[in-house]
Design a protein around this nucleic acid. Structure first.
Lengths: 346, 346
DNA sequence: CTGTTAGCGCATTCAC
DNA sequence: GTGAATGCGCTAACAG
C-alpha cells in the first residue's frame, strides 16, 4: 500500500507514457477537445481504460479555478420541507456534472458561519443558502470575496447574489383569510423561529388579513418559537389554557400544526370541530395525518430547481443574475383540518 | 473582476509577504503546528485576518492526498428513511472537519456508477454506500482502487470495506410473528425493489416465521416491487381483489404500508378491523397516520453515526476495519394498525 | 525556531 | 496535429 489510501491511482503522465503520446494530448482527449487524430484518440482511451485512469479533480480545479462543486446550506435535512428541495438542487447539479456538498446548520449562526467557511476553502463554485440567519453585512462580505450566492427565502443586494423566494406574507394572508372566511374571529398564530425571515413574513401576512377584516391583533394568542412537532404541541397547550382560547390556529409550519393537532386531541378537543388548524409547507405527511391538514404549499422542488439553475447559470456566464430575485406564490391546499368550506364571501 | 469568479482570494504567499516571514512559517501556523514563536504567530494571524485569507483545500489536498470530504451515496433523500441517516453522518463528519458530498441514485445502477466515479475523481477520502445495487465485483474493483468503503445493509469481503447492517431477516420474522400471534393465518407481503438486499432479507424472515408455524408460503399473496406510497396502494388493491384476500399485510417499508392503508380505506375496509398492517423503518410519519402504524424500527440515526464513525476511523488509521461488520437488531414498535395485542404465546 | 527547494496532477501558453 | 515548459497554492523534507 503506498503512502495513503490511494493504491494504484494512475496519473495522466502514466497514460501518456503507455499510449506513447505527450501529456497534453491525453489532456486533450479527456477534455473532449478537437484536433486529435482518431488513431491517437483510440490509443489514449485504451491506455486510460487499461490503467483505470481517473482525472484528479483537485489538480484540475487548482489550475482551472473551478471545482465543479456547489455548497448547499440548509437548516436541517430532517425537517420534511428540505428533502424535496435538496433533491431537486441535486438533480439539477448532477445533470450538469456538478456535485453538491450538503451542510446542516440547525439554524445556528455559528454553525452556518463555519459551514460557509469550510465550503469556501473547498473552493465551491457557488453557494445556495436556504433561509440564512446571518447578518446581511456578513453575507455581503462573503459575496465580496468572489463567490456566487443564491439565497432562498431571503434577498441580498449584491451583484453576485440572486434569490428565490416564496411570498411568505401572501401565504400568511391566504391561510388567515381562509380561517376568517370560515367564520373564525379568534385566530391564533403559532410562531416559528424569531430570526426566521419566513416567520416574519408569515406573521405580517397574518396581521394584514386580520386588519383587512378589522380584527384587532392580539399578541396573547401568538405563541411558539421553534419549528417542530413538540414546539407546536406546547404552544397549542399554552394557547388553549387561555381564558379566551382561539377557535382557529394558523401554524408557522406543518410540523407545528401537526404537533398542535396532536395536543388538541390529547386534550379531548376535536379538529376541526372545536379548533380549526392551518399549516404551512405542505410536507408529505400533511395529507396523511388525521384529519388531513389544510396548509399553504411551498413549491419545494421548484424552489430547488430554480435555485440550482440560477446558480449554475451564474457560474457559467459569471455575470450578475437577472432578474435578481424570482418570487413564487404559495398556494392554499384545502383538506380537512378546518372543516367544511362553503365558499364564503370575503 | 479577475479571470473567474474569485476576486480577492489571498494566497499563502501574500500572507507571508505581509507578515514578513516565509511561506512555510505561515503554513505552520495555519496547521496549528508547534514551534512558532508567539510573536511570529501573532503577526501571521494578523496578516491572515487583514487579507481575509483562506487556505485552498484543493491545493492542500493535492499534496496531502486527503480531501477531507467523504461521499455519501443513497437512493433518494425524499424517502423519509434517509434524512435521519444522512443527518447523523453529516454531524459525525462535521465534528471532525469533514464535508459530505451527497448523491442520490434512485436505485438506478447507472446513476450509482456515475456518482461513484465522480466522487472518486473528487478524491473523497472514503465512501458510504447505502444499500448499493452494484455487483460485488464492481465494488471490489472500486475498493481495489484504494478507496475506503462503508456499506450499509450490505456486506463486501474486502480489506478496505466495512459494513453496518440491520438484521433484515430478524425484522421480517418479528413483523410476521406479530401478525401470526394475533391470530392471522393469511399474511401477505408487500415486496420492495427486487434487487434490494433489504427486501430479500425481510422476505426471508417472513418465510421463516411462516415456516415456524407450519404455514405454507403462498406466492399469490406477495405483491409490489417499489418502495413508495403509490406502489403500496396498488399492491394492496391487487391483493384484496384476490379470491382469498389476506387478513394481514406485512409491508416492505412504511411508505408501502401507508399506501396500502390509504387504499384499504378507499375500499371501505377498516384497519385494523378488517386488515392488519405492519410496516418497516419507523419513519416519522408512521406515528401520525391514522391509525398509527405498527412497524419494525431501523435505528436510522445510529446507523448513520456508526457508518460515519467507522469510515472516519478507517481514514485516520488507514487500517482494515474491525470487526468488518457491525449488525444492529431492528425493533418492533407496536401501535394501532394491528389491533389490540394480547401478549399471545409464540 | 525558521527558510529553501521540490513537486502533488493537471491545463495551458507557445513552438514545431 | 502534437510536444516541452511553466505554474496553480500548498506541504514536506532537509538544512540552518
Amino acid at each position: 500500500m503506498s503512502r495513503h489510501s490511494g493504491v494504484n491511482r494512475a496519473t495522466i503522465k502514466q497514460v501518456a507514457r503507455l499510449s506513447g503520446v505527450s501529456i497534453k494530448t491525453v489532456s486533450r482527449v479527456i477534455n473532449g477537445a478537437v484536433y486529435v487524430s482518431a488513431q491517437t484518440r483510440r490509443s489514449v482511451t485504451d491506455a486510460i481504460n487499461r490503467l483505470n485512469y481517473r482525472p484528479n479533480a483537485l489538480a484540475r480545479g487548482l489550475v482551472t479555478r473551478r471545482s465543479r462543486s456547489i455548497g448547499l446550506v440548509i437548516a436541517d435535512i430532517v425537517n420534511p420541507f428540505f428533502p424535496p428541495f435538496v433533491r431537486s438542487v441535486e438533480d439539477a447539479a448532477a445533470a450538469r456534472g456538478y456535485n453538491v456538498i450538503l451542510c446542516d446548520t440547525d439554524e445556528d449562526r455559528g454553525r452556518e458561519r463555519a459551514a460557509i467557511s469550510l465550503l469556501l476553502e473547498k473552493q465551491v463554485d457557488g453557494l445556495i443558502l436556504c433561509a440564512s440567519r446571518l447578518p446581511a453585512a456578513f453575507l455581503m462580505a462573503v459575496a465580496d470575496s468572489g463567490i456566487l450566492l443564491v439565497l432562498v427565502n431571503r434577498v441580498l443586494r449584491h451583484p453576485r447574489a440572486a434569490a428565490v423566494v416564496v411570498d411568505a406574507a401572501e401565504g400568511g394572508r391566504r391561510a388567515t383569510a381562509h380561517l376568517l372566511d370560515l367564520g373564525h374571529r379568534r385566530v391564533a398564530y403559532l410562531s416559528g423561529p424569531a430570526t426566521s425571515f419566513s416567520h416574519i413574513g408569515r406573521l405580517r401576512g397574518y396581521r394584514q388579513a386580520l386588519d383587512a377584516r378589522g380584527i384587532a391583533f392580539d399578541p396573547e394568542i401568538v405563541a411558539g418559537g421553534a419549528a417542530s412537532i413538540v414546539a407546536g404541541g406546547e404552544a397549542a397547550a399554552k394557547l388553549m389554557s387561555l381564558k379566551r382560547p382561539p377557535t382557529a390556529i394558523f401554524a408557522f409550519d406543518d410540523l407545528m400544526a401537526i404537533g398542535a393537532m396532536e395536543d388538541l386531541r390529547r386534550q379531548g378537543r376535536r379538529v376541526p370541530g372545536d379548533v380549526a388548524v392551518v399549516g404551512f409547507d405542505d410536507i408529505d405527511m400533511a395529507a396523511f395525518v388525521a384529519p388531513p391538514l389544510t396548509t399553504v404549499a411551498q413549491p419545494k422542488a421548484e424552489m430547488g430547481r430554480l435555485a440550482a439553475a440560477r446558480l449554475l447559470e451564474m457560474i457559467k456566464t459569471s455575470s450578475p443574475p437577472s432578474p435578481r430575485t424570482v418570487t413564487l406564490t404559495p398556494e392554499l391546499i384545502i383538506r380537512r383540518s378546518c372543516g367544511w368550506y362553503k365558499e364564503a364571501a370575503t
